[in-house]
């Protein structure tokens, strides 16, 4: 809160408006600036092939970020995504053992298991009142441990060839990108135009008021964790197809990147505020940063530092804009 000398007040009000403007549109502006910078720094980014790759990777992150946004909207958090990725790739390889015709059953099994993990997260958070950070981190360790125990440390099986389709692109279009766009369309509709979406926002905005309005708060919260996990499975299938073999460390870091994307895109950590449009921009921003850093040959550590700075900057901006005039 600040008070200015009278002759300064107009300037200060403008200052606040500017902050609010930056908070509302900042992520899009940042994205634009980054694209401009890329034209100078890493012109290679604008080659069709690079764009296709960036979009495919953005889709991977983006699908996870949809779920993460839903979970953040109810003031939750999901750190168990890495575990789900590993589990997904093992299930796909194990069930199909390279057979194309078993892909669909494999995906269904992975989805079922994923839903179970999400259910576990949700139940821990709601019924046992474990803080989401602790619950989902615990689940991450549990799932990773379980997959290791199952494979005894040496993952077997083969990834069916048909999944390699995720690597193909037609200009910049690819299956992952279409999947990401499609899922975004679906979930934007769900959040904006359905009763369920309203309830998600209500639970995040004021849990007690939601309960007193007759919303089954626990059901809503559990459901977003389940959705989040299923979306992670979807992204995991894509990534498995892309990698082509079972990797114990597949998907590591996506949980943090997806949280970052949602927060940078304007979804509030405390719930009840934000949405998927911002998250899309956040995903593109983070993906661009990674790709540009790679193209410029920067060390992985430098990449982390840049990402960290961007996240801190975004969070600071949003909190500044929420301060009253």
């Amino acid at each position: 809160m600040s008070v200015a000398k009278p002759h300064e007040s107009a300037k200060q009000v403008n200052g606040w408006r500017a902050r609010k403007f930056v908070a509302d549109y900042g992520v899009y502006i940042a994205l634009l600036l980054l694209l401009l910078a890329a034209a100078v720094l890493t012109p290679k980014l604008y080659e069709v092939n690079t764009i296709a790759v960036v979009m495919r990777q953005a889709s991977q992150l983006g699908i996870v970020a949809i779920g993460q946004t839903l979970i953040l909207l109810v003031a939750g958090l999901d750190l168990s995504i890495g575990g789900i990725f590993v589990m997904t790739s093992i299930v796909v390889a194990d069930v199909t053992n390279g057979r194309d015709d078993l892909v669909i059953p494999a995906i269904l099994i992975a989805l079922a298991l994923g839903a179970l993990v999400g259910l576990g997260n949700g139940v821990l958070v709601t019924k046992r009142r474990v803080p989401p950070f602790v619950a989902t981190l615990g689940m991450l360790v549990l799932v990773k441990g379980a997959t290791q125990a199952y494979t005894r440390g040496v993952p077997g099986g083969f990834v069916p060839e048909v999944l390699g389709i995720v690597n193909q692109s037609w200009f910049v279009l690819s299956i992952p990108l279409l999947l990401w766009l499609g899922l975004n369309a679906v979930f934007m509709f769900v959040l904006g135009r359905t009763a369920y979406g309203r309830k998600v926002y209500a639970v995040g905005s004021n849990t007690e008021a939601a309960r007193l309005s007759g919303i089954s708060v626990d059901t809503i919260r559990i459901s977003v964790y389940v959705l989040g996990s299923c979306l992670a499975v979807a992204s995991g299938v894509v990534l498995t197809g892309y990698v082509g073999y079972v990797d114990r460390f597949i998907g590591t870091g996506l949980e943090l990147d997806s949280i970052a994307a949602a927060i940078v895109g304007g979804t509030a950590f405390v719930g009840g505020r934000g949405g998927l449009l911002g998250t899309i921009a956040g995903v593109l921003l983070i993906q661009l940063l990674s790709t540009m850093a790679l193209l410029m040959g920067l060390d992985i550590q430098v990449q982390f530092i840049i990402k960290g700075l961007v996240i801190l900057g975004a969070v600071t901006l949003y909190s500044l804009a929420n301060v009253e005039e």
Binding site: S205, I215, A268, G272
Partner: peptide
């Protein structure tokens, strides 16, 4: 009150079933 949500959402929250058809607003 849901302070971070619009007035509209606040008013219609308990009667969502009346303003939705098959879950769609």
């Amino acid at each position: 009150l849901f302070t971070s949500l619009s007035a509209r959402i606040n008013v219609t929250l308990p009667i969502l079933s009346r303003i939705t058809r098959m879950g769609v607003l």
